[in-house]
């Protein structure tokens, strides 16, 4: 594999970031704060994968949380019904999410733009409604009816990583490093895609679809592959989420959760490399802060979406880049719009 200078530079940043997070538990001992960082890892993974598929591959999919849920539910169901160890269930969850993406992608990716958004949204909603309206008992657990897909309450209190036995009071540390590992792997894989062959192909497709196709770059095939890869990591995050919280339920389907992740992508900068990670951190702080104003969480998210799209469409990453460019006077010349001749 050829490592381009851009890829090498980003690898260095990634190693620094991950090393930084690995040291966090030395400083932060409070379990609540550590828990917040873990949540940040989850949302940053989902946001970065959504950015990969939406900002780089150009697929406006609204099924990102659905893929996360595929991972979470698979893990929960395997542990709950199959008595499987979470360590075995989690990879299966990631694979199931990948398969789901391949099926959805095969059905939707031949369409473009808004069609993809509408269908992916509709598919996720239909599954949501089917799950919560299911009342048929699959199994009784301590006199409680448990539906096959968890019904309106979902799954909870199943076996987790097992760190409580080994690490006792420090079990949270075990969870922290497991999630950090998934986070780290995701970052490296994402960088390879964005700054490698695939990123190049997507830039070619975006700049000139006709030329790209004539050089044998099939938009459908490339988009499907990246959709599947992003689903794998999103599903993996979902699996680890289920194992960490010992929970997987229909609340994950909520529109406001989807919007929270979307706001992270947009605020951070759609189509950037590190934007979604910055956006995830910023939005978590904003949401926490808005809660103090009589639970104005959703209003804060909605306003963030509208204001950023209106005034800062490149997000924080874009703004930072142009500021950097202005300070060091390396502003790239904007490309000339073609003469359209009416």
């Amino acid at each position: 594999m050829i490592i381009s200078p851009a890829l090498r530079k980003n690898f260095v940043i990634a190693i620094a970031v991950i090393a930084g997070f690995a040291l966090v538990p030395m400083v932060v001992t409070e379990r609540y704060l550590l828990g917040e960082v873990i949540i940040f890892f989850f949302w940053a993974i989902v946001a970065s994968q959504w950015n990969l598929i939406m900002g780089h591959a150009g697929v406006f999919s609204l099924a990102q949380m659905f893929l996360f849920i595929c991972g979470a539910y698979t893990t929960a169901m395997l542990v709950q019904f199959g008595d499987l160890s979470v360590w075995l269930a989690m990879p299966v969850g990631a694979v199931v999410a990948t398969l789901a993406a391949l099926i959805i992608g095969a059905a939707c990716l031949r369409l473009t733009g808004a069609y993809v958004a509408l269908l992916t949204f509709a598919i996720a909603e239909v599954v949501h409604v089917l799950i919560i309206t299911d009342t048929e008992c699959f199994r009784h657990i301590s006199n409680n009816c448990q539906q096959l897909f968890g019904g309106a309450t979902g799954f909870s209190r199943f076996a987790d990583f097992g760190f409580r036995k080994i690490l006792k009071a420090d079990w949270m540390l075990g969870n922290y490093y497991v999630v950090l590992t998934v986070f780290a792997v995701t970052i490296f894989a994402t960088l390879v895609i964005i700054h490698g062959r695939y990123g190049l192909a997507f830039r070619a497709i975006r700049d000139n679809l006709g030329y790209a196709s004539s050089r044998g770059i099939s938009r459908f095939r490339y988009q499907l592959i990246v959709f599947a890869v992003s689903a794998f990591f999103t599903g993996a995050a979902g699996s680890v989420y289920a194992a960490h919280f010992r929970f997987a339920g229909p609340s994950l389907f909520e529109f406001s959760t989807l919007m929270l992740i979307l706001s992270m992508v947009i605020v951070g900068g759609l189509g950037s490399t590190w934007g979604p990670f910055i956006g995830a951190a910023v939005m978590m702080i904003v949401v926490e802060w808005m809660k103090e104003f009589g639970d104005a969480r959703n209003i804060g998210m909605g306003l963030a979406l509208v204001l950023f799209v209106l005034f800062m469409p490149g997000g924080l990453a874009g703004a930072f880049k142009s500021l950097w460019g202005r300070i060091f006077d390396r502003t790239p010349k904007p490309a000339a719009a073609p003469d359209t001749n009416v």
């Binding site: 490309a335 000339a336 073609p338």
Partner: peptide, 8 residues
């Protein structure tokens, strides 16, 4: 013209 390219 368009963008930074004067045509006239």
């Amino acid at each position: 013209g368009y963008a930074n390219q004067p045509v006239l």
